[in-house]
Design a binder for these strands. Structure first.
Lengths: 147, 147
DNA sequence: CATCAACCCTCCAGCCATAGGAGGGTCGAG
DNA sequence: CTCGACCCTCCTATGGCTGGAGGGTTGATG
């Protein structure tokens, strides 16, 4: 691969923008701290370094970070994301495996939603009976105290 | 539900049962570990000790633990529970303060529920398009990868 | 060329709520 | 007296993230 011998005009490669970690952070929406953390726990592999020991991120690295960001936004754990990434990398994957992972996650979300709704229902009910004035009588406290 | 008053059989003080931490744990549903932790962080005050340095829990202590357990089940943080406990203790409280705390918590639950539902919606949509067979093509992966 | 701010580096600690274990002491029934 | 079930304290880890200390690098200025 010819590396810009005779650079007629400097910077011949347009798309090969290599970013520092700060640039990668603002591009991906993942904080600098977290990018380093993801690297430390092996969620992303070690990236290149400059002579001054700065991490450099190419387009592929940024894509990976963006993937992680989206997955995180959808509530996947880092461990699930690890599996999603390896499925992404695996050209011979079965989409069934991806789907199974996602359906399991949906089920998890369902049960968390149900738990939160149940809490909310009970609390609404308790709060309903509470006058919310300057007197101490309070069915919320009574309810928590087991009346 | 009359519980055998006048049992005439010894035990003149029926309610003054003092329990070890294990008993307190099974009575309250809070683990032994957590009871000690709650004490360490000052959520509950230090209880009595036997000659052998075992913690002892009287009915009041158990009530407190049960209160905490119920509040925890309703999703309150330990910090919120701290405030609820001091409101419980405060005979001159305003029920408005209790209600405000609870309404804020309900709002918090609302936003968590909304966030989870939004994740679930997106995931369902992605999963719908995925064949889930032995081929690699997968809109879920594509979606995460930013297609 | 020196300086300076804005970066970057590593390492370490803390958050919340909980679980687990090591290494010991205490209790009560047999 | 022994044994198992309990209890004690102290330390570690989890997940996912934030913060800071103490330093090095970079690149635009004066």
């Amino acid at each position: 691969m010819r590396i810009a011998t005779h650079v007629s005009k400097e910077r011949p490669k347009p798309a090969a923008t290599a970013l520092n970690i700060g640039g990668a952070a603002s591009r991906s929406g993942i904080s600098v701290k977290m990018i380093r953390y993801y690297e430390a726990i092996g969620l992303i592999s070690k990236v290149g370094r400059t002579a001054g020991n700065y991490r450099t991120y190419d387009d592929g690295d940024i894509n990976r970070l963006e993937f992680i960001k989206r997955a995180r936004t959808l509530g996947f754990s880092l461990d699930e994301i690890r599996r999603l990434l390896s499925l992404w990398d695996d050209d011979g994957r079965n989409s069934a495996d991806v789907k199974a992972l996602v359906l399991a996650h949906i089920a998890e979300l369902d049960s968390r939603i149900a738990a939160l709704k149940s809490m909310r229902g009970t609390l609404r009910h308790l709060a309903e009976g509470c006058d919310g004035d300057n007197r101490p009588d309070c069915p919320i406290i009574d309810g928590l105290a087991g009346v």
